[in-house]
C-alpha cells in the first residue's frame, strides 16, 4: 500500500516511459539514410534494411541505455553521491581498456575484428574483459578517492583514472594497428554496429543485473539512514556493497562492449527519474533503467535524423547534452 499521490506519480512515469519507448521504437525503425516510404515492407531491399539494421539498432540502443541507466542509479545509491555515474567513476574507461586488450590479443592471433564482432564466443569474451576492466576502474577510482563521500574527490579521482586508462588503451592500439580499427568500431560510442547478436547479449546482461539489483535494493534504502544504522540492522555491508559493485560493473561492461563509451546517460537518467518520483530504490532503479533506454534511443534517433543521410555518432550527442546537464547540476548544487 502506498500513498495515492505517490502511486499516481509512479503510474504517470511508467506510462510516459512506456509511451516514449514505443513511439521512439517506431521512429527508430523509420528513420535512417534509406528513409521511409509507404509500402516499404513490400520492397525486399528496404525490408532487409529495416529488419537487419534498423530494428536491432533500435532495440540495442534502448538496451544499452537501460544498462547505463541502471548502472548510474546503482552507483548513485551505492556511493550516496548524486554525481556518481559509470562514465565518471572510471568504470567505462576500464571497460574500454578491457575491450581494446581483447581486440589486440585477437589481432595478434590474426583474427579479423569483424569475426570478433560476430562470433558469439568472442562477444562473450569482449563482455567479460569489459566487466573485469570496469571492476578495476571502479576499484582504482575508489582507492584514489579513499571512499566515495566527497563528491569533488570522487569526481577528480574518476577523471584521473579515466585519463590514465584511456591513455593505456591508446598505447595498446598504437602497438596493434588491427586493434586501432576495432577501437574505432567499438570506442566511438556508437549504436551503429548493434546487430541481433549484440541485442541478445545486452538482453541477457539486463535480465541478470536488473532483478538482482532490485532484490538487493533495500540495502540501498537502509544506507540512506547512515552506515552505522545500516550495520545496526544486521546488514553485512561489505559483501552487499561488493555484490552491487559487481552488478554495476556487469551492466557497464556489457553496455561498453557492445556500444563503446557513451557518456552521461547513467548520470542523467536517475536524476530525471528522481525529479518526477521520490521513492525507495527498488522503484527508482527500475524507472532509471527505462529512462536510460528512452534517453539513448531518443539520442540515437536524433543522431540519425538530424543531418540525414549523414549520421552523428550517438556518443558525441550524449556527451554534448549530458555535459550541459552536468554543468547545470553543479551550478544548481552550488546555488542551493
Amino acid at each position: 500500500m502506498i500513498a495515492p499521490e505517490a502511486a499516481r506519480a509512479r503510474r504517470r512515469l511508467a506510462f510516459a516511459l512506456t509511451l516514449a519507448s514505443v513511439v521512439l521504437a517506431v521512429a527508430g525503425v523509420m528513420v535512417g539514410s534509406e528513409g521511409w516510404r509507404p509500402g516499404a515492407l513490400a520492397d525486399p531491399g528496404l525490408r532487409d534494411v529495416l529488419w537487419n539494421i534498423r530494428a536491432p539498432r533500435t532495440v540495442g540502443a534502448w538496451l544499452v541505455g537501460a544498462l547505463l541507466g541502471l548502472a548510474g542509479a546503482l552507483a548513485q545509491g551505492l556511493f550516496r553521491n548524486p554525481l556518481a555515474d559509470p562514465y565518471l567513476l572510471g568504470s567505462s574507461s576500464g571497460a574500454g581498456l578491457g575491450v581494446v586488450l581483447v581486440l589486440a590479443a585477437g589481432a595478434t592471433q590474426g583474427r579479423a575484428i569483424e569475426s570478433l564482432a560476430e562470433d558469439a564466443l568472442a562477444r562473450l569474451g569482449l563482455v567479460g574483459a569489459a566487466f573485469v576492466g570496469a571492476l578495476i576502474g571502479v576499484a582504482l577510482t575508489l582507492a584514489l578517492a579513499r571512499g566515495a563521500r566527497q563528491s569533488t574527490g570522487l569526481l577528480l579521482a574518476g577523471v584521473v583514472v579515466g585519463v590514465v586508462l584511456g591513455a593505456l588503451a591508446d598505447l595498446v592500439t598504437m602497438a596493434s594497428p588491427e586493434a586501432l580499427r576495432g577501437k574505432q568500431v567499438f570506442m566511438l560510442g556508437t549504436t551503429g554496429f548493434l546487430g541481433w547478436g549484440a541485442c541478445g547479449t545486452l538482453a541477457i546482461a539486463l535480465a541478470i543485473t536488473l532483478p538482482a539489483a532490485w532484490r538487493f535494493s533495500r540495502a540501498l534504502d537502509a544506507l540512506t539512514l547512515g552506515e552505522d544504522s545500516a550495520r545496526s540492522l544486521g546488514l553485512p555491508l561489505g559483501p552487499v556493497r561488493a555484490l552491487l559493485v559487481v552488478l554495476l560493473a556487469l551492466a557497464t561492461g556489457a553496455a561498453v562492449a557492445q556500444a563503446g563509451l557513451i557518456a552521461f546517460v547513467g548520470l542523467v537518467a536517475p536524476h530525471l527519474v528522481r525529479r518526477r518520483l521520490q521513492a525507495p530504490h527498488g522503484t527508482t532503479l527500475v524507472a532509471s533503467t527505462a529512462a536510460g533506454g528512452v534517453l539513448l534511443l531518443a539520442s540515437d534517433v536524433l543522431s540519425r535524423g538530424l543531418w540525414a543521410p549523414q549520421e552523428l555518432p550517438v556518443g558525441v550527442l550524449t556527451a554534448a547534452l549530458g555535459g550541459s546537464f552536468l554543468l547545470w547540476l553543479m551550478h544548481a548544487r552550488r546555488t542551493s
Binding site: 502506498i2 500513498a3 505517490a6 550516496r80 534504502d221 544506507l223 540512506t224 539512514l225 547512515g226 552505522d228 544504522s229 545496526s232 528522481r274 521520490q278 521513492a279 525507495p280 527508482t284
Partner: peptide, 15 residues
C-alpha cells in the same frame, strides 16, 4: 535496536 543522532536527512526520498 539502535537509533543514531543523525536525523535521516539522507533518507529524504523514502516514505
Amino acid at each position: 535496536a539502535w537509533m543514531s543522532q543523525q536525523h535521516g536527512e539522507g533518507a529524504a526520498d523514502l516514505g
